[in-house]
Each structure stands twice: as C-alpha cells, then as structure tokens.
Computed example of a mutant assay.
Amino acid sequence: MLKFSNFLFTESREPAMDARVIRECLEEAKLCDDLGVEVLWLAEHHFDGNCAYVDPTTFAAAILAATRRIKVGFAVAQVSLHHPVRLAEQIALLDNIGEGRLIVGLGRGTAYNVYEYQGYGIDWREAHDRYAEAEAIMLKAWTSKSGFTHAGQFWDIKAPRLRPECFTQPHPAVLRAASSEEGAMHLAERGLPFMMNVQSLEATRQRLAAYRARLAAAGHDEATIARCLDESWVWRNVVVAETDAEAARIGIPAFEAMQEQRRVMRERVYAEQGIRMVQETVPPARVQVESALIHGSPATVAAKMAEIDRTGVGGVICSFRLGPMPAAVANESIRLFMTRVAPEFQPRQAVAAE
C-alpha cells in the first residue's frame, strides 16, 4: 500500500529565528514518530535559511537519538559538496545510532543555487562528475573489509577499512534523486528505485509508466520491477484542514511565500554575478499551486492521494510545513493527515502508548 512520509524542509527567514526553528523541527520529528509516519526526510541547503538545520547528517543524529521507530532519509545529501570518505564515515555512524533506520538519499547537489557551490569553493559545472566519483568511493568504503585505494579525477585515496562498519550490511539503503526523465530512465536500466521531484499528476503518471517500461526493456523481472516501484517516492506539498476552504486559506499563501523566499537569493546572485544555473522560460510544476500543492479536507486530500496511488509508486514525500507557516499549524495538518487520510490506504498506524 502507499506509504507516507514527511519532508522536514523548514525555512528560517532571519538568523535570530534559527535556534527556535531548529527546536521546532526536532519536535515535529518526534510528533511524526509518535503518529507512525514511515520516513522523515531531511534536505541539505546552505547560506539562505531555506533549510533551517542546513546539514542533514548532523541533524539526523539528533533525530535518530530522539525517536524510536521512524526512518530517517536524506532528500538529498548534496554529495558533490562533501569529501566522500568523510560522508561515508558519517553515514556509517548514523546507521549504527539508528540501528538500521537510515535511508541514504544521494544527489549531485542543487540545480538552482550557484551560491551553495561557491560557498564551498566548488565549480558547479563539476557537480555531476564529482557526484558520480564520490558515490563510487562511498560504496567502496562501505563494502571493503581490508581498505581500498582510488585514483580519480577529484580524489586520490588510500584508506584503511572504514570504522565503524555499517550496522546494515553491506550498507544502508541507498536511493538516488532523479529530477529529469533521463535520470529516471538511467536508474531504470540499472534496476534502481528513485526519488522524483515535484511534478504534475500527469507528468508523474507518464514518468512512472516510462520508468516501468524501461525496467522491463532492460531485462529486469517482474519481482525487480515491483520492488523498484515500491521503493520509489514522489514529492508533494500537503496541507490538511477540516474544510477545503480552511486548507486553501492556510496553504496557498504559505506555499506562495515559500516559493518567493527560495527565489530571492538566486535572483540576487544573478543580479550581482550574471550566473543562472537553469534558464526557465515557463514556471515549472514545482512552483505552481495547481501541480505542487495538495490542499483540502481529509476527504479531499485522500482522493488526491488515491490518484497518486494509482500511478503505482510506493510512497509520497509530503512537505507539511511550508514557508512561514507556524509550527502549530503544520503539526495539526500532520495529525489530520495521519489520523484521517493515511488510514484510507493502509492499516491504521499505531500511535505510541506512553
């Protein structure tokens, strides 16, 4: 059945707000654990306050220590910004802290915010190649029992055996982001699941159908195809309230303010430096209310989730706290979703008995 998760991608608009928002993020994680949310996904973004806790590896340690059931995933770790052995080591430690509750979502890094690469002294045009080389190094680090060497474009490494070794053998579940259809097709050929960014329902249907067809064309059997679909996730922004009108009143302004906040820094950099990583002539689905925001009463949201369920994907990554939305409002949306929407798709999630 369709799985539901929370993307904890919370902004902090001013430095003076950071400490409070980070505390609220941790409380939201504990609420999700109590309500039976499947996975809590963490983002990685730097310098602009659009992801308050900034570093998913550090924050994952706090969440894993404060929760009991919920899995913690990266959506995604920006691999091109990290030394791969250091990141592999941190992930192995997290896997031990959570005793196997980690999903390692990997991606090259942002496709929009050039200042994140500049802040780390990395040429953004190297991001894809750095990611590919780093992922290969990380897999070597996790699986080698006697150390390994690597000579590549960006790193020359002679490393002893990684310690601690991963709690999950041979390593935690790894999930790759695919922001384009080309990326999804490449993963289909390898027989790997993927995470899809925000798309319209029609684009989601088309991409998943193409992904399924490419899996079959690549020679993967029905069991592999079913596993890949079950382990793949799509992302939506979600607001649930008692009525459709209340959800629209709460959700639409918060969503629009969030998109404007995310745009500001990259536009400032473009004005100052003339650098824009992506040229967009038409607003993409991820910034349009009609395609990117599911909002309404529990019945309305359940009907929209049922449409996603019929695509065959395994799970939905739901962003509940949008832009300047207060924590209490987001938490009530999560409660309504988990008690009145999620049970329509699977046996009722067990709420922790204290």
Results as ranks from 00 to 15, higher is better:
A159F: 03
L229A: 05
N237V: 01
R163V: 15
A173T: 14
L162S: 03
W235K: 12
R249F: 01
A223R: 14
Q206S: 11
E256R: 11
E133F: 15
E181Q: 12
I157D: 01
H171N: 14
P164S: 14
I225T: 02
D230C: 13
S180V: 03
V234W: 10
W233K: 08
A210S: 05
D221T: 05
A218V: 02
A257F: 04
M138D: 02
G274C: 09
V198H: 07
H171P: 13
V238P: 06
L229Q: 06
A173E: 15
V198T: 15
E181P: 00
A134V: 00
G183S: 11
I137S: 01
A136S: 10
M277P: 07
H186E: 15
A247L: 02
Q206N: 13
R266D: 11
R176S: 08
I250A: 12
M265A: 10
T243S: 13
A248V: 10
S200T: 11
S144Y: 10
W155P: 09
G219A: 01
A210G: 06
A223H: 10
A257E: 15
V239F: 04
L162R: 11
I250F: 03
L162Q: 08
E246S: 12
Q169P: 02
Y270S: 10
A188N: 10
Q273K: 13
G147F: 01
R207I: 03
H186K: 14
V234C: 15
V174P: 00
L175D: 02
M138V: 05
P253H: 13
M265D: 01
K158Q: 10
R214N: 06
R205V: 06
G147S: 00
I157L: 12
I225W: 01
P253K: 09
V238D: 04
R176C: 08
R161Q: 14
